[in-house]
Design a protein around this nucleic acid. Structure first.
Length: 569
RNA sequence: UGGGGAGUGGCCAAGCGGUAAGGCAACGGCCUUUGGAGCCGAAGAUCGUAGGUUCGAAUCCUACCUCCCCAGCCA
């Protein structure tokens, strides 16, 4: 071990630390297997929108390329036209770009290689390594055997090369119906690895493809397309999730049979988050059954949902870097993600005052009709953000939670007879509580100390609390959407018998406040603008905003010590 | 019960034979015109279990236990 001296380690400077993948890459670099190249790719299937789990993969792949001075490709794995759509392709491109991964001019599609893939399949047939099978799907399953019993050869397995060539060409020409026959690799029906029991390479699909239209009637399976696509693009390290581990022998078999350049497949554990579902199938269901407003519903773990929610690419990258990458299945607590968006926004978001649940305050000794502009700091963490003016008047709104008629010990906000500070405003003292016929508090009468303008007391006296507020006359009315976790259970994929993840949806995941008040400085802010509503949390302007009514989404609340005290009781 | 993987504090995760990094969470205190942020501090791990090798094991060996993945003409 080198002692003392701090030799700068490039790996420690980038966000990603060391992990089992960098270790493998280092070994390859040491042995010269890829001549020191590092070339990764992100290979999404365009059958849905990208989610935070994909962000882990994107940041990993792009991050490694960056870290080693290599290249990164974006390649669509578009081999199944029955599930894939152009809409998804476009959304995915937007999301990957937004996350900050740069594929430069290397945007590819597996469908770009359909011609080459077909030729290679012909080569396999000529080598006696593939055959056309007329067993139907059920029969193929039966012949495959089970986990503990070997399979048996298809009766069509020993067709002649000529016959196979002819049949395969006719498959391509569209002469057969879907399901009538398939092209299979001839490997080993007794292999303990089921994926090696003569896997299907091509199936017939009379379906229009988003990119190749009706040109093809046969489409390659993942196992036949993926490795060769990696090979064509000269990818060095082909990263995928754990469930493909058992496919690696097949990945390598294909490449070896073709005698072409062979990348290294490496598998890592996919991301799992508490109170979240990251299965594309289930996300599609949430959208199609209307449990959420769409793919970009701010409650969705999709990239577009997180974006609309107010998350930043920087926060997502910090998160994926920090959780690391390994081969152990694990579940990250959602709090970890929330930590990183708070951390980012704390430094980047301007502060603003907003009252969500208004309680009217009348300052009896403040002149009627008077409005003063008071200076407020935009961001205490960033002096360059400057200041703004906030209007103060005789009638204000404060948060209902900030007043208690009969406060417990640790509550040190406003109460009868108590003096508190209005942020950037004045010290006020509550003199009277006004209630309606049902005993609900509807208004507070207070007095203010003109000497405390801006929030400082010349005599040095102190107050325990500082409250946010808004001028009744000058405040903007806005809609505020408060989001909570979409599921009420930590692992929504593990539900009681007879239930599905739908049954465990959190009924309170969205709370809409139709009439919240925000200081006027936010007027006209464009969609996506992020703020910290002081003492409440981080919010961003939703695209639903109009000139008449702004709409804000709560990205995440501030850490709330008072709420914690209340919880402890 | 075939094959392939994984088990390190509440949640992640370093570590690669020399005596357990870091992050999140939780806890105590300081500070504060956000009960935010920040700062300081303390606590928390017999490294799945049991054996073995070694002067020394989370790291090597053996056995066992638990969990995950594979029987789509999905990816």
């Amino acid at each position: 071990m080198a002692s003392g001296e701090s030799t700068p380690n490039p790996e420690e400077e980038s966000g990603l630390g060391r992990n089992f993948i960098t270790q493998i890459i280092d070994e390859h670099n040491a042995s010269g297997r890829f001549d020191g190249r590092v070339h990764t790719r992100f290979p999404p299937e365009p059958n849905g929108y990208l989610h935070i789990g994909h962000a882990k993969s994107i940041n990993l792949n792009f991050g490694l390329a960056e870290q080693y001075g290599g290249k990164f490709n974006l390649r669509f794995d578009d081999t199944n036209p029955t599930k894939e759509k152009q809409e998804y392709i476009e959304a995915i491109i937007e999301d990957v770009r937004w996350l900050g991964a740069d594929w430069e001019d290397r945007l590819f599609y597996a469908s770009d290689y359909f011609g080459q893939l077909y030729e290679w399949a012909v080569r396999l047939i000529k080598q006696g390594d593939a055959y056309v099978d007329h067993l139907n799907a059920d029969e193929i399953r039966e012949y495959r055997g089970t986990l503990t019993e070997p399979g048996k050869d298809s009766p069509y397995r020993d067709r002649s090369v000529e016959e196979n060539l002819d049949l395969f060409e006719r498959m391509k020409a569209g002469e057969f119906d879907e399901g009538e026959c398939v092209l299979r690799a001839a490997i080993d029906m007794a292999s303990p690895n089921i994926n090696m029991r003569d896997p299907v390479l091509y199936r017939i699909l009379h379906e229009a493809h988003p990119r190749t239209g009706t040109e093809w009637h046969i489409y390659p399976m993942y196992d036949w397309a993926h490795g060769q696509s990696d090979s064509i693009e000269e990818v060095t390290h082909s990263l995928c999730t754990l469930e493909f581990e058992a496919h690696r022998p097949l990945y390598e078999w294909c490449l070896e049979k073709l005698g072409i350049y062979q990348p290294q497949q490496i598998e890592f554990a996919r991301l799992a988050l508490t109170y979240t579902i990251l299965s594309k199938r289930k996300l599609i269901q949430l959208v199609e059954e209307g449990h959420v407003s769409g793919w970009d519903d701010p409650r969705m773990p999709t990239i577009s949902g997180l974006r609309r929610r107010g998350y930043t690419p920087e926060a997502i990258r910090a998160f994926t870097d920090q959780i690391g990458v390994a081969k152990a299945n694990s579940m990250i607590e959602i709090e970890q993600l929330e930590h990183f968006i708070r951390q980012d926004l704390n430094y980047s978001a301007n502060r603003v005052m907003s009252v969500l649940n208004p309680l009217k305050v009348v300052i009896e000794n403040y002149p009627e009709g008077q409005v003063e502009q008071l200076e407020a700091v935009n961001n205490p963490e960033d002096e360059s953000a400057g200041t703004r003016m906030v209007p103060f008047s005789r009638e204000l709104y404060i948060e209902q939670d900030d007043f208690m008629e009969d406060p417990p010990k640790k509550f040190y906000r406003l109460a009868p007879g108590r003096e508190v500070r209005l942020r950037y405003g004045y010290f006020i003292t509550c003199t009277d509580v006004i209630k309606d016929a049902d005993g609900n508090i509807v208004e507070l009468r207070c007095t203010y100390d003109p000497e405390t303008r801006g929030g400082h007391a010349p005599d040095g006296r102190r107050v325990k609390a500082t409250l946010h507020w808004v001028s009744v006359e000058k405040a903007l009315q806005a809609e505020v959407r408060l989001y909570d976790r979409l599921f009420s259970q930590e692992d929504p994929s593990k539900v009681a018998n007879g239930q599905t993840f739908i049954d465990v949806l959190n009924p309170d995941s969205l709370q809409v406040i139709e009439r919240a008040y925000v200081e006027p400085s936010v007027q006209g802010a464009e969609a996506g603008t992020r703020y910290q509503f002081e003492r409440l949390g981080y919010f961003c302007v939703d695209p639903d905003s109009t000139d008449e009514k702004m709409v804000f989404n709560r990205t995440v609340g501030l850490r709330d010590t008072w709420a914690k005290i209340q919880k402890q009781k």
